[in-house]
Measured scan of single mutants.
Amino acid sequence: TTEYTFTDDEEARRAIEELKKRGLTFRYEKHGTTWRVRVD
């Protein structure tokens, strides 16, 4: 499991789109302004 942290909404959304394109399994949660994206 790899975890990424983003504080920029645009950056987080781009990363999420990219992961979807690659067909990877991931989860994300947003805490205030911080996004945590975990890739299995």
Rank of each mutant, 00 (worst) to 15 (best):
E3V: 14
R36S: 07
Y4C: 15
R22K: 11
T1K: 08
Y28C: 15
L19P: 00
Y28M: 08
F6K: 00
T2I: 14
R13W: 14
R13K: 11
H31R: 09
H31W: 08
R27F: 14
R22D: 04
H31V: 14
L24A: 10
R13F: 13
G23C: 10
G23F: 04
K20V: 11
T34H: 09
F6A: 01
T25G: 06
T25V: 12
D9H: 08
E11K: 07
D40E: 13
T2R: 12
E11L: 08
E3F: 13
D9G: 07
T1R: 09
E17F: 08
D40V: 14
R36D: 03
H31Q: 12
T1E: 09
T7F: 12
R14V: 07
T2C: 15
R38H: 13
R27M: 11
R38N: 08
K20I: 13
R36A: 04
T34N: 07
D40W: 15
W35R: 02
E29S: 10
T5A: 05
T7R: 06
V39Y: 03
Y28K: 03
Y4D: 01
T34R: 07
K30A: 03
E11F: 05
T7S: 07
V39F: 05
Y4P: 00
E10F: 10
F26W: 03
D8H: 05
R36Q: 06
V37C: 04
D40F: 15
K21Q: 08
T25Y: 12
H31E: 13
T2N: 06
W35M: 04
Y28I: 15
Y4I: 06
E3H: 08
E17V: 08
E18H: 08
R27V: 14
W35N: 03
W35S: 04
E17N: 10
K30I: 09
T25F: 13
E11S: 13
E29R: 06
W35G: 02
K20R: 12
V37T: 00
D9W: 15
A15M: 15
A12M: 13
I16K: 00
K30E: 02
E10G: 11
D8P: 02
G32V: 01
R14T: 08
T34K: 07
I16A: 01
T1S: 11
T25Q: 10
F26P: 07
E17I: 11
G32L: 03
